[in-house]
Each structure stands twice: as C-alpha cells, then as structure tokens.
Amino acid sequence: MYFPEYRARRLRRNENIRRMVRETHLRVDDLIYPMFSAFGKGIKKEIPSMPGIYQQSIENIVAEAREVYELGIPAVILFGIPECKDAMGQDAYSETGIIQETIRAIKAEVPELTVITDVCMCEYTDHGHCGVIKDGDVDNDETLKLLAAEALSHARAGADIVAPSDMMDGRVAAIREILDANGFKNLPVMSYAVKYASAYYGPFRDAAESTPQFGDRRSYQMDPANRVEALREAELDVQECADFLMVKPALAYLDILRDLKERFNLPLVAYNVSGEYSMIKAAAAKGWIDGERVMMETLLGMKRAGADLIITYHAKEAARVLKK
C-alpha cells in the first residue's frame, strides 16, 4: 500500500511529542473569574442554574478572592446586587455602593489581585435595563453621564480596570474623558466591544437579578446574525481609546473572535458566559459528557480562535486542572 512521504501521525505518537508541537496553550494567566457581590452579611447563596457559583456578601467575596489569588488567577470581575434598586440605578455610582465597598475590601485584603468592575446599570435599575428610560427605550446620551459617574466611582474605590458592558454608543469615550479629567489616565478600559443580544445570558440574569421588567435589550445589544457590524463596533471602541476589546458570548461567536484578532492589535477578551457554563455543568451532571475535558476543550477553542484572556466561571476549576 502506498503512503505519502509525510505521515502526520508521527507527531502524535506520544504525549511528549504532542506537547512539543502543541500550537495553542491555555494558561492560568489567561483566566478572569466573575463574582457576584450581594448587600448584607453572611450571604453565600448558590445560583440554581450555575452550580458552584454564588451570590455572596462582601466577607465571603473577600475569602473567595483570596482563594482565586492563591490559585494563580490574576483577576476577578465584579457584578453587584444592591440593597435597593431605583429607576436611575443610584447604587451603581454611589461612593458607598455595593461594588465600591467590595473593591475596597478586596484591595485591603488581597491587594495584588487585579479587580475589574462591570460598568453597567442593569443590576441597579428597578426596570432591569442598562440605562435611563425615556419613551419606553434607553436614552443613550443621558445614560452616558451615569456610566461615566459609575466608572469614576469604581476608580476612586480602587478598581484596576473598568469594563463597560452597556453597549451605549460613545460610552468608552465618555468614560475615558472623565477618568482622564480626574487623575486616572493610567486606568485601562476593557470594553465589551461586541456584545450580542443572546439567549446564553439566562443564568446570569438569575445571578445578577437583572432581567428586564419590560421588553428586551435588542435595541442596544447586537443582532446575533451580524458579523460585519461587530467590526464597526470594535473600530469605534478602538478610536475611543479602549485598552481591551471583548466578545460576548464566546462559544457561538468564535468567528467574531477570529475577525477581531486579525483586524485589531489590542488584547482580546472572550466572555465564556453563564449559559455556556451551565450547559456543560448540566450535561456533566447527567453523565452525558466528561465535564472536565469538555470544559478544557471549550476554553482552548476560545484561545485558538484568538482570545488572549477568557472571563469564565470555570476559572477556578480550570486553574486546578492546569496545575496538575
């Protein structure tokens, strides 16, 4: 039987050779862990649709932040669940808001852990939308003022990076302007540059208690059918001086990750969202898949598509696997 001169299996024949020629690598340094900080004391409430992920009061957030740091994970991203919500989401930009207090507590106890903050209004408004409502829709330009105030309050509390996730037009520029004007020229902005109106967010909305009370978010988040629009959105954020670009969700949008990687030279972040996490957990609990292997293959696929960093609820598990 005739064989071609080159046999691809030669480079797959044992683990050492496979390691030597491996093209894509997932590292603990690539991981960012999301955390949900809740107002109150003694709170550690598991999210039913996200096994192993909790709403936690600040003292428990700090304890988990220490665990994250000891695993070698470089950063967390914080989401807040305030005591009270109102139409203007005032807790989002209050100097004593839930996230501002959480930042201070983490930086006091685990100062070397990088703290990223989600900058948005949906967790803080009683209507669940990402900004100021006028005539039944989010008013873009009025919302920019609140987002800028929120980002500045996070910076003053000690955040290392702010991450606007609202998808308002011009929000990166508004945040950059207010940070620069107040002595935070060196604080990076991690933009949710390409954020789709996705069904994969369902478990997150349970976790953050941010389900819209009317309508949906399709007037400001992107249509899942669109690809070229993603390049336009990312280009605008580059022009407005974003320091990182993010694609959310990741798993169904690997083509978008690759597009942005080939077009722009900023660090690229993939958000491995709640629905992606929950599907793996549910299938593993049923015994239908090897949860650990599917988790690692999924994260590696995001890296292969072009992600430099991955926000993932799997971060602690993945870090333990990588340390084996």
Results as ranks from 00 to 15, higher is better:
D30V: 11
M20F: 09
L113N: 03
L231H: 08
F79Y: 15
E67Q: 13
Y200Q: 05
D180K: 08
M121Y: 02
T24W: 15
T125C: 03
K303P: 10
D160W: 03
G287E: 15
R263C: 02
F204M: 14
L309P: 04
I17R: 14
G42M: 10
D126V: 12
E240S: 13
I310C: 13
T96D: 04
L322W: 11
V76F: 06
I73W: 08
A163H: 06
I116E: 05
D141L: 09
A155S: 11
C130I: 01
Q221M: 02
A63P: 00
Q213S: 15
T211F: 12
A197V: 02
L187V: 07
T117P: 00
L266V: 08
G97P: 01
G52Q: 08
L245D: 06
V119F: 03
P224H: 08
S37G: 05
I289Q: 13
Y6I: 14
K145N: 05
Q239P: 00
G89N: 06
V189C: 13
H154D: 12
A159K: 01
D259E: 06
Y313Q: 12
F39W: 13
L299V: 15
G89E: 04
Y192S: 06
T117Y: 01
A157N: 03
D29G: 09
E101A: 00
R19H: 14
Q213E: 13
M246E: 01
M295L: 15
R218G: 05
S165Q: 09
I178Y: 00
G170V: 04
P188H: 08
P188G: 09
M190Y: 08
E23M: 14
I280T: 10
Y33A: 14
Y2M: 12
R293M: 15
Y6C: 07
V189M: 12
A151L: 01
P224A: 08
A8F: 13
A305H: 08
A38T: 11
R66N: 12
G202W: 03
A270E: 13
A305K: 10
D139F: 09
A63K: 15
K323S: 13
K85G: 07
E67K: 09
I73F: 04
K281I: 11
T143N: 06
E23A: 15
I175L: 03
P4G: 09
F184S: 03
G52L: 07
D290W: 12
M222N: 09
Q55I: 02
L147Q: 08
R22L: 09
K185P: 00
E109F: 00
R7Q: 15
L31Q: 10
L300R: 14
L231F: 00
E23P: 00
G40H: 05
Y271N: 12
T96V: 02
A242E: 01
G158R: 06
E64T: 07
E209M: 10
E235H: 01
R232Q: 12
T24A: 15
K323H: 09
E317P: 04
P4V: 07
L146M: 00
I175M: 04
L309S: 05
P51Y: 12
A230K: 04
R304G: 11
Y2T: 11
I178D: 03
F204K: 06
H25L: 14
A155F: 09
G158N: 07
Y313D: 12
K44D: 02
F244K: 02
A234W: 00
M1A: 15
I47C: 06
V132S: 03
S274D: 08
